[in-house]
């Protein structure tokens, strides 16, 4: 369980993280989203006791960050870019990490074998890390972060630089961990966060903007209902009919296509209104031919863009 309470971190006069409070339940996978420079990495560095917070505190399984040594025993951390010693081979590197954690030699051997199997590292155990691809290095980092069987895993962009197959493998791995371990991971790949995380937290400029399940967040961002309709001909009758039966309707966009058809975008501020049904009935009543009708749902991308001031997510 991770609980942050008004965490702040200042660099000089600027705040990298400001008054950040949140809670990650035991066994939950929490996604940390935000544009570059939003304070994701700084937050993670504070939770792993690498940077002391300027003010505020966090507890990890009931231990305050000031009890740094005990906290670090509970936490497994994969920093951004998965740093490791490139001169060592995978086996030697994992053994070193185990020894640094004070695992007894026999346990260390077992754990290295177990984790390298879980992360699919068996065939590269005796290759130098510098010879490995980015994906394998990332997996080495992940294996290293789990070697001492931590209760919490903090993963800073665990899937950057991986190919789609590897991304899916890592996702499966993280999903498998859910339930046993508390996971906090950051990413700016939104579909991934949606697929892996139980809950999502969006931060921007060091401040919490939203927190909830992916479904909750998209619902929250949806606002109104947007309907894309393509009608044979001009469709003016249909529009008039619809406007007269449906108050507050807004025709946001109208475009005549080359073949004489017209494409409309209808918007209604109430997301639960029966705009699609009304459009169908209006088409029947005016004998207009509907060629296409599509309701647009807000995606996590919209939520993200809205909450982080339209800055792009890459």
């Amino acid at each position: 369980m991770i609980k942050a309470d008004h965490l702040c971190r200042q660099y000089g006069t600027s705040f990298a993280v400001q008054n950040l409070s949140f809670e990650v339940q035991q066994g939950e996978v929490m996604g940390l989203l935000g544009p570059n420079g939003a304070g994701k990495s700084t937050t993670m560095k504070m939770l792993t006791c690498f940077l002391p917070p300027s003010s505020g505190d966090a507890t990890i399984h009931g231990l305050s960050l000031s009890q740094s040594l005990q906290v670090r025993r509970l936490v497994g951390y994969l920093p951004e870019h998965a740093p490791s010693y490139h001169e060592l081979d995978v086996d030697a590197y994992l053994q070193f990490i185990g020894k640094m954690h004070g695992l007894p030699p026999a346990t260390c051997q077992d754990k290295v074998a177990e984790m390298s199997k879980a992360c699919g590292l068996e065939q590269v155990m005796f290759r130098r890390i510098e010879e490995l691809s980015k994906g394998f290095r990332q997996r080495v980092g992940l294996a290293a972060s789990m070697l001492h069987d931590p209760k919490c895993l903090i993963l800073d962009e665990p899937t950057t630089g991986l190919d789609p197959n590897q991304i899916i493998e890592i996702r499966h791995l993280i999903r498998r961990l859910a339930g046993q371990k508390t996971v906090l991971l950051s990413s700016h790949i939104l579909p991934e966060v949606e697929a892996v995380c139980d809950r999502i937290m969006i931060i921007d400029q060091g401040q919490l903007q939203a927190l909830g399940t992916p479904a909750e967040l998209t619902k929250q961002a949806q606002g109104g209902l947007l309907l894309h309709v393509t009608i044979q001909g001009s469709g003016e009758q249909l529009c008039n009919h619809l406007s007269s039966t449906f108050s507050n309707l807004e025709i946001q966009h109208r475009e005549s296509l080359d073949n004489g058809d017209t494409r409309y975008q209808f918007y209604h501020p109430d997301a639960s209104s029966a705009l699609a049904e009304a459009t169908f009935h209006a088409a029947v009543a005016t004998q207009a031919v509907l060629l296409e009708m599509r309701q647009e749902k807000a995606s996590l991308e919209d939520v993200f863009r809205e909450l982080t001031g339209g800055t792009s997510c890459t």
Partner: peptide
Amino acid sequence: KDGTYELLATMPTR
């Protein structure tokens, strides 16, 4: 430079 100091410093080591 390689960022491995972050690893060392986040292990239970003084």
